[in-house]
Amino acid sequence: MFRIIGLLTLGILSLFSGRAIGAGAEDFYKGKTITFVVGFAAGGGFDTYTRMLARHFGKHVPGNPATVVENMTGAGSLVAANHIFNKADADGLTIGNWIGPLVLQHILGNPAAKFDGRGFGWLGVPTPDSGVCALTAASGIKSPEDWLNSKRPIKIGATGPGSTTDDVPKLLREALKLPIQVVEGYKGTARIRLAAEAGELDGGCWAWQSIKPTWAKGVESGKVHIVLQSMLESHSELKHVPLAAKYAKSEEARDLLKVADGPYGVLARPYSVPPKTPKERLEILQKAFMATTKDAELLAEARKAKLDFTPVDGPTVAKLVNELYDLKPAVTDKLKQIILPKK
């Protein structure tokens, strides 16, 4: 009898506790504004995804807070990553969107990466990236064979070390011996596109999920060619485009392409909050993120904008980030030679 009463009491307390948490969250977020900090310039893929998510995010958070998007460019989004980790308030009102492979820069010992990837609170990823290299028709390169036989290095635009635009071309250059000149310093893929269209660059390497909506006119007109896929598996829309793995001649080359497939694929565009964000608020934001990526209105908007949404949840992202810190020493030594900034 007493045991039954005890169980009923625990159940009632649990019910009221859950309601109290929900009410507390609603009280906190009501009338507040959540700021999304994007590490790249307006008009690029990261910015495009974030602005779409932000438009629908507030309705999935208790209290329905407002949202605003800020662009904090610099060093291939490293400025934004450092800001989220070291300066942003850990109150659940600031969400960062910077390129995930920057975690490798910390692992490999780049002192400019002033964070530990294991310390962030991870909300999730809207969709894994499928890396490709897009070159202009003016470059004269229409196939990997053209590229391998080029008498000059092909100028590839990049933002900075730790970004897909920077690291993947370097990995491809090492693995496949492609003639590549990486030109760093652009503040986002929107700037790289403009430079390529002006003839300043031959093109760039980043996600098809970003190129498809933002460089659609170039691709559809034939002024831009998708020449190579850097991932291990072909994207369903790009079965006609060769995989880089086809041209790998050694086990080391294949290992480097596996790196290009991992951190630069699933982990490419994560959303994070500062360390020590209260667990309750982190969980609320994680749930809101996943709910937003499945929101019917967002998905209808995404179809019109040609944006893919195949979300990966926060706990999975956290697990994958932690696994990067367990890379074999031989792999990290090689990566240091290839992708760390030269002193």
Results as ranks from 00 to 15, higher is better:
residue 298 L to C: 02
residue 268 A to Y: 00
residue 311 P to E: 10
residue 95 I to T: 06
residue 252 E to C: 12
residue 287 K to D: 13
residue 104 L to S: 03
residue 95 I to V: 11
residue 281 R to K: 14
residue 340 L to E: 08
residue 286 Q to L: 04
residue 11 G to I: 13
residue 154 I to S: 00
residue 99 I to A: 05
residue 143 S to A: 10
residue 210 S to F: 08
residue 164 T to G: 10
residue 26 E to N: 12
residue 180 I to E: 00
residue 241 V to M: 13
residue 196 A to K: 02
residue 242 P to D: 12
residue 94 T to N: 08
residue 341 P to L: 03
residue 153 P to L: 05
residue 248 A to H: 05
residue 119 G to A: 11
residue 281 R to E: 04
residue 285 L to K: 05
residue 94 T to S: 07
residue 160 G to E: 02
residue 172 L to C: 03
residue 248 A to P: 07
residue 253 A to M: 06
residue 50 T to V: 11
residue 182 V to H: 01
residue 200 E to S: 11
residue 246 K to L: 14
residue 264 Y to F: 14
residue 337 Q to V: 09
residue 228 L to P: 01
residue 18 G to T: 15
residue 56 H to P: 02
residue 62 P to S: 09
residue 61 V to R: 00
residue 102 L to M: 12
residue 149 N to G: 10
residue 161 P to T: 03
residue 246 K to T: 15
residue 109 G to Q: 11
residue 220 E to Y: 08
residue 48 T to W: 01
residue 243 L to H: 10
residue 219 V to S: 08
residue 227 V to P: 00
residue 135 L to C: 07
residue 316 T to N: 09
residue 101 P to Y: 11
residue 13 L to T: 15
residue 226 I to P: 00
residue 77 S to C: 09
residue 251 E to M: 14
residue 88 A to M: 09
residue 288 A to G: 08
residue 142 K to H: 12
residue 304 K to P: 02
residue 168 V to Y: 01
residue 245 A to C: 15
residue 232 L to K: 09
residue 203 G to D: 03
residue 298 L to V: 04
residue 327 L to S: 06
residue 279 K to D: 14
residue 20 A to W: 14
residue 66 A to N: 15
residue 156 I to F: 01
residue 301 E to C: 06
residue 40 F to V: 03
residue 166 D to Y: 10
residue 315 P to N: 07
residue 177 K to H: 13
residue 286 Q to E: 13
residue 109 G to D: 08
residue 17 S to I: 09
residue 261 D to L: 10
residue 60 H to V: 05
residue 51 R to V: 03
residue 245 A to H: 07
residue 150 S to R: 03
residue 243 L to E: 08
residue 137 A to I: 04
residue 25 A to E: 06
residue 216 A to C: 12
residue 41 A to T: 07
residue 206 W to F: 15
residue 186 Y to V: 06
residue 20 A to L: 13
